[in-house]
Design a protein around this nucleic acid. Structure first.
Length: 885
RNA sequence: AGGCGCGUAGCUCAGGGGGAGAGCGCUACCUUGACACGGUAGAAGUCAGCGGUUCAAAUCCGCUCGCGCCUACCA
């Protein structure tokens, strides 16, 4: 196997992904006796392409899946796509229109065939993209929300909810999109602050003699007014209640009614009532008995219920003309600028029209209460927990859910209308005869269900529900759900409601809510801003591993992720660093035998302090990584791995081990060093595998290893037997000495290649032993020619000096040392330490601190202060000796 | 209008009652037998402001100011 000088991710990714698929690594084994771990993927739209949001939450899911799999659990990560009613219909619509035809010309049946054909041809591109990311989904269980089994689940759920009285059909005011020509739910309406006008219009009394002024932002809807409302306690209008006014332009007479919903302070305190085109008015009209009058068609054009002059006009043209006519007729009393919220269609941004129509609804109040209860009891836990507030707030004032859509692509509602007696039958299958009149002309309701209705069933419909399958028994409730807060209400809340009603238990126990991936400036990514970053492009340029590591490292719970490309550059460098570390470790092995068994770790008494140190650090890393993952702290997990690999393994341990590997080293020593290097590398690759699956697999395969794939190798567990605090202290001391000497070299501008002598005087026995034991290592790392004890440091010639706890260091530099520079350097150091010591001194001088603080805190402050004082003292003495000559 | 979150190094962010941290960037030096996608050393912060609790506050509480988000039927 070639071992290139730099890591080239592109060449290995598909190879290893294929390898995993061939081995069936991702396939769940419900028959196994291992504990089950299950996640369902938030199904991306079948029309979708992978965006940064997908990349983020699927990376996090994959980390969890790979981690649990390596821990020996039976992992099911169930993938699939969503049929995405409106989105998909729009895509195919456009395609047909570009051919000069139309959906209507094609007819419903043909159109649906076209959508399926489109799906087969172009749909699900995102699946391939998830694979490029490295997602370890169980592709043998891939689902699609429109496939027959899931359609059946949808019908079953609808019928059961209907039987329970939770699904009903009613004529109600809904959010209507005149462009999509369908009803949509409250959630699909995006309020947008808009600068509009508030028009004041005078409605004259039917009996003559003045009139009442009403204020409106949508004057065209007056053509549908069937009354005027005032507050019952409003003294200005109380006497007018019951009187009639003449509706300008239309000429109809309408009554003045009283209703407490009117805000006396707003506008004129009198409100025109348009029951068929305003949600509030609709409610008020119901209370006061005013009839609704629909004045627009489903495309937002004025219909036959308005005077001929306005008929067929688009609502905004009608608005213009109505205002013009009101002005001309002297009915317009005033116009003011007015800032208000206008609801727009989430899909097409068209201004939503509140519209009276017959729709299907889910009565959600009780389901919402149950769903809140499950969260309150901790049966479903959110991370971060503060999302519970939003969840409860929304659930608390939820309105019935409009689930019917006037689309063609989707689950057609399982309700059949009798052509004879108009009875509606809700049933799992089409009835043959009408149960009421015996009529045989039964027509299925043309509407389809809101896409989120089927998504709400996803955690169990995908496992086979309503069949009692083995998968359902084993994997429901699922373990964790990872998703974005943008679909907390659309999806998460509804899954909990549906799961609680249709299943014996909640759909998942944990919900991890990700932040939003933003651009480097913290702006939301959007096509209009032109700042969209394509994860596939990042994979091409930096590799899937670097992208995954970046996302994991930035995934701090509860905050958004501003994605700066420099960050990716940094983590690609990290991948390269690991690559080269492995290259070095293998390069120095004589046999370099791939697949051979790893050499056993030498017995403890044969290990060097450096060996014991890195093994101890490795064991701590294993604990940290596991703990961090338990808590969904992907960022801290990633940082711990980064820190260990780069700064402990590469910066220090490799350098410490190098002398043992170079030609001329003792054979036994070389063997020991190699064994430890390999052991630690192989272990940390396994720890890293969930985040960087491709790189780690590729390197692992080159290392001596056991098994076919790292993806099924055991996840390293912390080994308490390897924790070695003495070795950690020892190497820390070595590191400190080396750093001080490097500092001398750098600050005094001494040739980095020059070998220097080091003299030391030990203030305590242990420190002296440590230096003596590690003299060779220190010499190698600090580029020294000698390390010698000098009991008397006062009689040296010109030498650079440094102190570390328990040790005075001197680097004799006859003829090279700039005494002034050295003095400045030492004084700077003293100054820094003094500032630090000051704080502690103040604290220790405070009687209250001594008396009231925890004794450990006092001890610690004393120790630190003493240490600092001691260093300062020794440095000061050194400066003085410098002055002497 | 309510609710939530956030203001810590030039940038992006961790931390969360007792010695101010990371990555990137910056400065100086270094092509030393893995890596210049590299190494070594360094500079850099009144932890938004004000007040309170405490022996001790970047950290807990309150207020103020900024920024962001979510929810809501003010025509």
């Amino acid at each position: 196997m070639e071992f290139e000088k730099a890591f080239e991710p592109g060449t290995i990714e598909t190879r290893w992904y294929d390898h995993w698929q061939r081995l069936g690594v991702f396939t769940a084994r419900p028959e196994s006796d291992r504990p089950a771990f299950c996640m369902v993927i938030p199904p991306p739209n079948v029309t979708g392409r992978l965006h940064m949001g997908h990349a983020l939450n699927n990376t996090l899911q994959d980390i969890l899946a790979r981690w649990r799999r390596m821990k020996g659990e039976d992992v099911l990560w169930l993938p699939g796509t969503d049929h995405a009613g409106i989105a998909t219909q729009m895509v195919v619509d456009r395609q047909i229109q570009s051919e000069g035809s139309s959906r209507e010309a094609l007819g419903r049946e043909e159109f649906i065939k076209r959508v399926w054909r489109w799906k087969e041809e172009y749909g699900g591109a995102i699946i391939g993209q998830l694979k490029r990311l490295g997602c370890s989904c169980d592709w043998t269980r891939e689902r699609f929300t429109m496939e027959p089994a899931l359609s059946r689940a949808v019908r079953e759920a609808f019928v059961r909810l209907h039987e329970a009285g939770l699904v009903y059909r009613d004529k109600f005011i809904v959010n209507w999109c005149p462009r999509c020509r369908t009803a949509i739910s409250d959630l699909e309406v995006i309020p947008q602050e808009t600068q509009g006008h508030l028009y004041t219009v005078r409605y004259p009394f039917a009996g003559g003699g003045g009139g009442i002024d009403v204020a409106t932002t949508r004057p065209e809807t007056m053509l549908g007014d069937t009354g005027v409302a005032v507050h019952p306690d409003d003294p200005r209008y109380r006497a007018m209640v019951g009187h009639r006014v003449v509706l300008p332009l239309a000429g109809r007479e309408i009554p003045i009614v009283a209703d407490a919903f009117v805000d006396k302070e707003f506008g004129t305190g009198a409100v025109k009532i348009t029951p068929a085109h305003d949600a509030n008015d609709f409610e008020a009209a119901r209370r006061t008995g005013l009839p609704p009058l629909i004045v627009m068609d489903e495309q937002g054009r004025m219909n036959e219920n308005v005077p001929a002059r306005y008929r067929s006009l688009d609502r905004f043209e009608a608005r213009r003309l109505v205002v013009e006519d009101l002005k001309a007729g002297g009915h317009l009393v005033g116009v003011q600028d007015h800032l208000h919220n206008v609801g727009r269609c989430q899909r097409c941004n068209t201004v939503i029209e509140p519209y009276l129509s017959t729709q299907w609804f889910v009565r959600v109040k009780h389901m919402a209460d149950a769903a809140m209860g499950a969260v309150a009891e901790g049966r479903v836990r959110f991370t971060p927990p503060y999302w519970v507030n939003s969840y409860n707030e929304w659930m608390g004032k939820i309105h019935d859910w409009c689930i019917s859509r006037q689309l063609w692509w989707g689950h057609q509602i399982p309700a059949w209308h009798c052509g004879t007696c108009a009875e509606i039958h809700v049933a799992r299958e089409a009835p043959v005869v009408c149960g009421r009149c015996g009529g045989t002309v039964l027509k299925q309701d043309p509407d389809v269900l809101d896409t989120w209705f089927s998504s709400g069933l996803w955690p169990f419909s995908t496992l086979g529900w309503p069949e009692a399958t083995a998968d359902l028994a084993r994997y429901y409730p699922t373990t964790v759900l990872v998703t974005g807060f943008d679909i907390l209400f659309f999806w998460v809340a509804r899954m909990i409601m549906m799961g609680l009603h249709l299943m014996p238990d909640v759909p998942f126990h944990r919900v991890y809510i990700t932040g939003l991936v933003r651009d480097a400036e913290g702006q939301k990514m959007s096509k209009t801003r032109g700042n969209v970053i394509d994860p596939l492009d990042l994979i091409d340029r930096y590799g899937a591993d670097a992208l995954r590591f970046t996302l994991a490292a930035m995934a701090t719970p509860g905050s958004d992720l501003p994605l700066a490309e420099e960050r990716m550059v940094g983590y690609r460098a990290f991948a390269n660093k690991i690559w080269n570390a492995a290259r070095f470790v293998l390069m120095n092995r004589g046999d370099a035998g791939t697949g051979s068994a790893a050499p056993p770790l030498p017995a403890r008494d044969r290990l060097s302090a450096g060996d014991r140190w890195i093994l101890s650090r490795l064991s701590r890393l294993a604990s940290t990584v596991d703990e961090r993952l338990q808590e969904f702290r992907f960022d801290e997990m990633a940082n711990a791995l980064y820190q260990f690999l780069w700064h402990e393994y590469c910066d220090w341990y490799l350098e410490i081990a190098k002398p043992s590997l170079l030609p001329g080293a003792d054979a036994a020593d070389r063997e020991r060093a190699q064994a430890v290097l390999l052991h630690v590398l192989e272990s940390v690759l396994r720890l890293l595998h969930p985040v960087m699956p491709f790189l780690t697999e590729d390197l692992w395969q080159r290392l001596p290893h056991r098994g076919d794939t790292i993806a099924l190798a055991p996840y390293p567990a912390p080994d308490p037997g390897l924790i070695d605090e003495a070795a950690e202290r020892e190497i820390e001391r070595v590191m400190e000495v080396v750093s001080r000497i490097r500092n001398i070299r750098a600050e005094l501008n001494i040739d980095p290649g020059r070998r220097l002598p080091l003299l030391y005087r030990a203030g305590d026995l242990e420190a002296g032993r440590v230096i003596a034991r590690n003299a060779a290592t220190i010499a190698a790392l600090a580029r020294l020619e000698s390390v010698e004890e000098a009991p008397d440091m006062t009689r040296l010639g010109p030498a650079a000096r440094a102190v570390v706890p328990g040790l005075d260091l001197a680097v004799p530099l006859a003829g090279v040392l700039d005494l002034e520079a050295e003095k400045r350097r030492l004084l700077r150091e003293i100054d820094k330490l003094s500032k630090e010591a000051e704080g502690h001194a103040r604290k220790l001088g405070n009687a209250d601190f001594i008396g009231k603080a925890r004794p450990e805190a006092v001890d610690k402050a004393r120790r630190i202060h003493q240490e600092l004082q001691e260093k300062i003292g020794r440095l000061t003495a050194t400066v003085e000796s410098l002055r002497l000559g």
